[in-house]
Design a protein around this nucleic acid. Sequence first.
RNA 1: GCGAGGGUGGCUGAGCCAGGCCAAAAGCGGCGGGCUUAAGACCCGCUCCCGUAGGGGUCCAUGGGUUCGAAUCCCAUCCCUCGCACCA
Length: 952
Amino acid sequence: MDYNPQELEQRWRERWAETGRYEADPGDADSEEPTFITVPYPYPSGGMHIGHARTYTVPDVYARYRRQRGDNVLFPIAWHVTGTPIIGAVERLKKGEEKQLSVLRDTYNVPEETLQDLETPMGFARYFIDEHYKRGMKSLGLSIDWRREFTTNDERYSKFITWQYETLRERGLLEKGLHPVKYCTNERQPVTTHDLLEGEEAEFQEYTLVRFTFERDGETVVAPMATLRPETVYGVTNAYVNPESEYAVAEVDGEMWFVSVDAVEKLRLQAREVEIREEFAGERLVGERVTNPITGDEVPVLPATFVDADNATGVVMSVPAHSPDDYVALLEAKADAERMETYGVDPADVEAIDPVPILEIDEYGEIPARDAVEERGIDSSDDPRLKEATKEVYNREFHAGRLLDVYGEYAGEVVEDVRDRFRADYSESGAFDSMYEFSEEVVCRCGGDVEVAEQETWFLRYDDEAWKAKAHEVVSRMDAVPENTRGEYDHTIDWLNEWPCIRNYGLGTRLPWDPDFVIEPLSDSTIYMAYYTVAHRLRDVPVEELTREFFDTLFYGPEAVDEPDETALELREEWDYWYPVDYRFSANDLISNHLTFYLFHHAELFPEPKWPQGIVIMGMGLLEGRKMSSSKGHVVLPGEAIETYGADTVRFFLLNSAEPWQDYDWRDDQVGSVRDQLERFWNRAQEIIRTPEGERELAHVDRWLLSKLQTTVREVTEAMERSETRSASQEAFYGFEEHLRWYRRRADLDRPGARWTMRKVLETRLRLLAPFVPFVTNELHEQLTGTPAEDAPWPEPDAEFENVRVEVEERQVERLTGDVRDIVDVTDTDPEVIRVYVAADWKREVFDAVVEEGPDVGAVMGTVMQDPDLRERGDEVNRLVQDLVDVARGRDDETLAAMAETDETAVYEGATDFLEREFDADVELYVEGEEAYDPADRAKNAVPFRPAIHIE
RNA sequence: GCGAGGGUGGCUGAGCCAGGCCAAAAGCGGCGGGCUUAAGACCCGCUCCCGUAGGGGUCCAUGGGUUCGAAUCCCAUCCCUCGCACCA
């Protein structure tokens, strides 16, 4: 029977579907040990590629393993459609965007006539769910309970999320406040990263506005200096405005501000009341003196064309001691008295300005900006190296600069440690204000300018100390795989702030008390694993019955409400049976958001026994060494890979090429070779299956192979327990293949004992490999024994077959063979006779002493020298002890004991036929000193476990 | 910059936590042989350098150190990857 993966895999898929093989219900398994495994539900805004395939296959392998160990395993899946990506994709499709059409047509092979079905968000999602994800998952043979699938846009799911958010609000973990968003000034609405033409990388920067003031027409006017380094306020020597840009005096929240006209709109978007009183060119303010709110100093306003009126307030302060830009600008101002005069500035005033240092730092002298500029020989603000100088000074000062004495309570502190506190203190006292600005220009796809707007929004209060403490508690109790990720969760918990959990539009659940908003994707996916436990049964409950009380009853029990709903109580049993989640498998980039949110919400909403038990982190996938990218068409679709290689090959490659948490690289040539390996495995198995069973009459090599098999079982099991799918499959497949290679050389395979051994080995390996390559192993195991591998229990190491002595002995044969081979190769001879000399008895006595005393030369010598015969041999013994101590070192006691029992001569005797076959030569075996025929005087070189050899 | 992970032989990638069976697994690629009319597949062997005796030399990013002994432990340096938020 030839290996035809597509055909046999299809048969198994059908069988699984027909029998509902992976539909898990409470009480299914004998052991009553439920195991609940989850993986983040896919987001079907596009097709499934091979990277996704691995994401879902890793948990599947673990699920299959637990099933074979007798657990009742639940592995469900659902579909995440919340938010805007799907809507955005549909919009781009409807607009007929070339790029989008190409991705759909060429990358994901959407048929032309189907494209119109994709023009609604759920139509789009449904297509990729059914045609890609679901089909792909079924092809891969994932052991999913399909009855439990749902989407996050389902009305029942929304009821569940509604329960979650009402509960959180009641517990004070939701809060209303202002938050910066990207806002298109043309479309007059918030936009997402996907809507942007330019500036996808842009970050929100919160500028501090230092409220300098001046008097104008008897009124105090605030000149808000925008800066990212508020702590430099003591070093301000002057201010700059762009004389050629438009500025305004405007009423901002009841006071008069001087800002650029561009800034007016920004301030409005950032929830300020702004009314322009007067507009004029920046020139008008040049020459004015403004008062530093912290120091009380008056400094002049100078003209500078490098000031960008469209950035923040358009008014900046100058700190020449610490800003290379400012330093160079000051030099230029001093050098150009004429220009100063044009703007009505007295050149003498400019000349009088000296940089004022505000911090000290080892790398520079008193005026860091000057040093950085002079070091590079920069003498113009156009010099490109100025940027680099600025970056260097900013960085070093931030991490190592210590504030000088004028800072009072902040003096002596490093900028990095003190900036936030400094800013907060002066904001409170009213000296500082703030506004947002992007780090680069941002343009909407519609061409409109995108600005930062502050919008009223709802936050999840991840900054709540009590909540953080609970989340840490979850981390400390769970199994983090690999262990080094544990710290990352703790780190993220500490670092998380308030999280805005609603959006203006998108699919998903409406905010219960304000249906204008929708709960965003990372916030509606924190406890849905609980929903799986009842999803299929919830479908029979009318939507309107899914009230707050219903879910309270379901999750908190009958005591939680006055009149518990009967159905809810029934469902509660199933939820209680499966929950908590034993392992969640997820990608490493989700630690900093999704997974930590998952921990937070479980910590709050569920009691400790229902908290997550473990998280396994998965690595990223590459394709032929490069990142996969669906927009560039650089992807492999699972369907195509399965078509080419078969699902078992795809699975085996994905699981075997790296541990789950390591990055892996899909390479065609490698996948092809996996396919070849599986085919070879199949062919060998077929031979065994059609050969008569044999009998248990075991030869030495048989016992050796069976002993190796037990080691393999043990190692594979241990690896699986640590989720090390690579080690496990490597060991069960390639590792054992090595043993078989030796076995085939050594053994007469036609013997009944060999046939019995081969069957035994095959059966065991099929079970070990069943989680990885379920199709081929089920098929072969059924052919061999009548039952599929997945229905056979996971193998246990069988002490009956473990035999260290046999392994030691066989190892000697291997070694002797290798040594002879080496000599033959080096001498390039074709031997007629191979003479093997086993070490003399007295040498063996020395070895026994080494075993007894352990690898301690002194101690062994002490013992050995008691023996008069040995003492006579003096130096010879000494050298032998050194050698044998090396042999003993690093071997465990059990092995040494087995060696001590081994009769070397008998072992080689038994291997004589084999050696004669191997080398096509006569083999003569002697014991050193016992009438050995020794023409080349080799026998003396014999050492225990290292016989001397002579070839001729 | 912060946080995390990593640099091993032509490539991929084990080993490192628990130092010595490590010239360093396995796969790929390459070379030789077998099978075959032939090719592919398959099977066997070889694949750092030197060597007509199982040995020797050099080696695991770089430079130091600890140790009888370091790919493995410590220190420093260089380089690479990922995450750093309102994007799922």
